[in-house]
Write a protein that binds this DNA or RNA. Sequence first.
RNA 1: GGGCGUUUAGCUCAAUUGGCAGAGCAUCCGGUUUACACCCGGAAGGUUAUAAGUUCGAGUCUUAUAGCGCCCA
Length: 876
Amino acid sequence: MPRNFDFAAVEPRLYGWWQAQGWFKPECAADGAEPYVISMPPPNVTGSLHIGHALFTALEDLMIRYERMRGKAALWLPGTDHAGIATQLQVEKMLRDEGTSREDVGYEEFLHRTWQWKEEQGGTITRQLRRLGASCDWDRERFTLDDGLSNAVIEAFITLWEQGLVYRGPRLVNWSPGLQTAVSDLEVESNEEEVTLYYFRYPVEGGAYLPVATTRPETILGDTAVAVHPDDERYRHLIGSRATVPILGREIPIIGDDYVDMEFGAGALKVTPGHDFSDYELGRKHGLELLNILNKDASMNDNAGLYAGLDRYDCRERLWSDMEAAGLTIRTEPYVTRIPRSQRGGEVVEPMMSAQWYVRIQPLADKAIAAVRAGRVKIVPERFEKVYFHWLENIQDWCISRQLWWGHRIPAWYREKDGDPQGEIYVGREAPAGDGWVMEQDVLDTWFSSGLWPFSTLGWPEETADLARYYPTQMMETGHDILFFWVARMIMMGLWFTDRPPFHTVYLHGLVRAEGGAKFSKTLGNAIDPLTVVDELGADPLRFTLITSGTPGNDCHLDETRLDHSFRFINKIWQMTSFINMNLDGALELGAPPSDELDLPSRWILSRMNRLIENVQYLFDIFQYGEAGNQILAFMWDEFAPFYLEISKGALYEGNEAQKTATRRVLVQLQDCCLRLLHPFMPFMTEEAWRYIPHDGEALIIADWPQADADAIDDDVEGRMAAYLELVREIRNTRAEFKVDPGRRIRAIARAGSAATEDLANNDQILKRLCNVEALELLPLEAEEPANSANVVVGDISVYLPLEGMIDIAAERRRLTDELAKLDAQLERTEKMLGNKNFVERARADVVQRERNRLVDLKAARAQIEERIANLGRLP
RNA sequence: GGGCGUUUAGCUCAAUUGGCAGAGCAUCCGGUUUACACCCGGAAGGUUAUAAGUUCGAGUCUUAUAGCGCCCA
């Protein structure tokens, strides 16, 4: 067995082997196995792997490998998303770099170039997922723009149209001037920014003025009213009069509405229904004219009069200085408000009137709410259900059309009628018969196709065998940041089109952030590149770190030192395997011998192991994978390796054949179990290490998941062993305190009498191997206590360590007095608890019993130490 | 403005129904002990943000306050 785990050589070899054997496919399970399916959240086809992808890969592969080991027909279906806006932006940038543009090359050529780009870049991210060990069924890989999925998108759109749930019409939309497309509410991010608040005078008929404040003066040109609060003593007499739009001289009404906030600005409100969502509502309520003053690139249009053609911000400046000259300005002041920006381009989005396609979403939302309420879909952690309900209960119709070129083209045709080029609309797979039909240019929101993902990838709307067997899926694992974008829409669309929720459980992970909560970003240079980590440390440490660093739903702040720790853990396991491997001798019967043939340490460690299996099972059941990983680590690093494995050297090096064989069987059993439990966390090292210990089966990836043996769990054995290990710690502590050379083997003497002491003497390897003492010597009860000794007490066990020439009586007395003080403090606490009638009567029985046992132990230890101090007093 | 989360060791995070607050990293001391120096042994480090309450018992439950973060207006 190699001295170290050579991850760079092993990882590709094992991955290729697993895949070639067909173990990533659900068909490798036994006939009739229950399916377990995860649809992979499809990454952007042209993207490359970042730490967020690594997190979902680690989690989903863990789930899939776990269920595969449990005998399920496990299917992790991979794929990629065409990611309309993101990809189009990338290709446009490429064209810009070539000195050309989307418009210059034209529609056909642009699509051609984008497909070309997809072919070149498309394999990158899926290759990178493989490096992490993702056990996906690559034969079933899908792409949102492939034929099958495009067919599903068209089917879904036409169905919704026929059901009257898709409509087209002019609405105020979030318009992205740079991208020249509408975007949905969700794609707009509003954050507080420092801007300027402009105070100015609205001339009113009769020579008066109304003071108004705005952060967007250019929209004055689109005002169609001024509003004041009907209770406002200052201005209410003006309701019904007319005001004049500055510079343009257009007359508009002054209206009264209690929507106006009298405290804001100067108390009066300019109303721009064409470029503000609140004003739009106000305008509808009051029957105001709706004026559009912007072109699609956010330059001013003819409605802006002499400002036509100016960019929106140039116009703002020019208009303000013209108003200043006209004496209409009051003042400006710094102001903090939320500015809506496009999630993709980062530019300021303008509300603008535009004809778009919408989904009437309420009927779909109602079903989605009901499904979660009824528990047909479970969201982990549960608190996100509230967020989900709140969003769906206040949902707005979904704007699904985008003025992009890259995406699913909406299957609609227009024909001129009564002078309106779009007077007639036809929706269908093919252009209708007759002349003059022109196909819709708009494409669908990327999330429209993503919403169909769990069933479109399995063949829907065709009734395929895969759809029948693997739908609905079991688990949807994704980030909580796309709960609305994606998860809610999948649930809506799944219920609507298949009448079943697309998955049973939603597991939401958090964002991976840098230390201190900073966002990872390339520009900040604080990004951890998963591929660099894989190159340097291997995939396993990255996976283990990501899984054990977080809890469901919470962002995790990734501490890079944990990567090193995971790497060292993996080395540790390799070394443990290596130790077992080199102490084998020929064929070995698998499984531990029956407990009555085992020594105390073996029964102890098997009890601990089975308790671990129980705990891990419980934690997996409640999706606490991180804690499960940590518990396995703690078991191996804090119990198995430093105690059992060390103690086992006694039997292996000095024992008889029966002892050797029994110990080997226990060691192999332990390591086999740990490797199985860890396989979903760190598939490569565990698989490779497993080959070096006796095992049953072809590969760990398809080995059985461990089951706890409740009969092996023995509280009595664990209690006895815990006391001895406590004694070990005390002896080590004492040695350190008296500066005994770690290499020096010392004597240890106990007086016979307690059963525990004799039990310990029968297991002399414990003290011998763990604190470098000779075998425990037993003195008769009536014997004198050994001279010049330090004394160590745990419960009713008292051990003397003769340390000739090293013991300072005064120091020993001080040490024992300190010890006594500690014991007294604990005694006081325990006695107080047990003296409390309420505690004894009301606390759980096992808790009370534990305190009673503690009291007995503490009293015994105290008596021993007191005696010892008294004896010290008699020494010269 | 409404909602959700969060605040635990210097840093990053744990803590199964409420039952003696734990890891890793960093720090200090000591070690080439035949699986591992990618290691081993020992030490130090905490009024669990603050204030009340419920309870025999609170990091955990309730209420209020403050800081930080996210979501929705």
